[in-house]
């Protein structure tokens, strides 16, 4: 049960950004290992927490707290995973197997995403895959925005907020999946 954790997260929303940033490493440490459960039991809360984090300077946070960067991503990807596994709208968008590596160009943060067309799932995590179809490079807050809905994938690409390498058709198939995920992430469950 994650109710106690949820109460602490709820309480953290009362704090200002500086205080939240200070408390976040400990909070993420406590979430570590319970991320999936937390997302399932308190999806709206996680959505709010990720929303608050988006208002922070992610690159600075990761640079100052490198050990918590992976925990932050685990929470992020747990959210994505849970959103995708129970949502027909998201699953319907997954028509192709696509693997993507993410690399922040302003802090030491790497991540990855993989879609499975047969299972209709999206999984992700920290670190790189050995052989990805696409590589997305850009500022950390843009990469997080791509996942949480703050940055429209196509619009962000056209406005040169990030760069993408790999086959163009994989990129165009990935965009609706990201859009659909981020719409869900932005909507309180």
């Amino acid at each position: 049960m994650t109710d106690e954790l949820a109460r602490r997260i709820e309480a953290s929303f009362e704090k200002d950004d500086d205080q939240l940033e200070e408390d976040l490493p400990e909070l993420l440490d406590d979430i570590d290992g319970q991320a999936d459960e937390l997302v399932r039991e308190h999806p709206a809360l996680v959505s709010r927490l990720l929303g608050r984090m988006q208002e922070m300077d992610i690159a600075e946070f990761v640079s100052e707290n490198p050990e918590t960067a992976d925990q932050f991503q685990e929470l992020l990807w747990a959210g994505v995973r849970v959103l995708a596994e129970n949502d027909d709208e998201v699953s319907e968008q997954i028509t192709e197997d696509i693997s993507v590596n993410f690399e922040a160009d302003d802090c030491p943060m790497t991540g990855h995403l993989r879609t499975d067309a047969d299972a209709g799932t999206v999984t992700g995590g920290s670190g790189h895959l050995d052989d990805s179809d696409l590589t997305i490079t850009g500022p950390a807050d843009t990469l997080v925005g791509l996942i949480t809905g703050g940055v429209d994938p196509i619009q962000g690409f056209m406005q040169q907020k990030y760069e993408m390498d790999g086959p163009v058709h994989k990129g165009t198939r990935l965009a609706p999946i990201m859009n659909s995920l981020s719409e869900k992430a932005a909507t309180p469950q």
Binding site: I154, Q155, M158, V168, T172, A175
Partner: peptide
């Protein structure tokens, strides 16, 4: 009518680049 939105909408509707 913003170009990046046109691309986004068109790709969302299933068009290729």
């Amino acid at each position: 009518n913003r170009l990046s939105t046109m691309f986004s909408n068109a790709i969302g509707a299933g068009n290729d680049m």
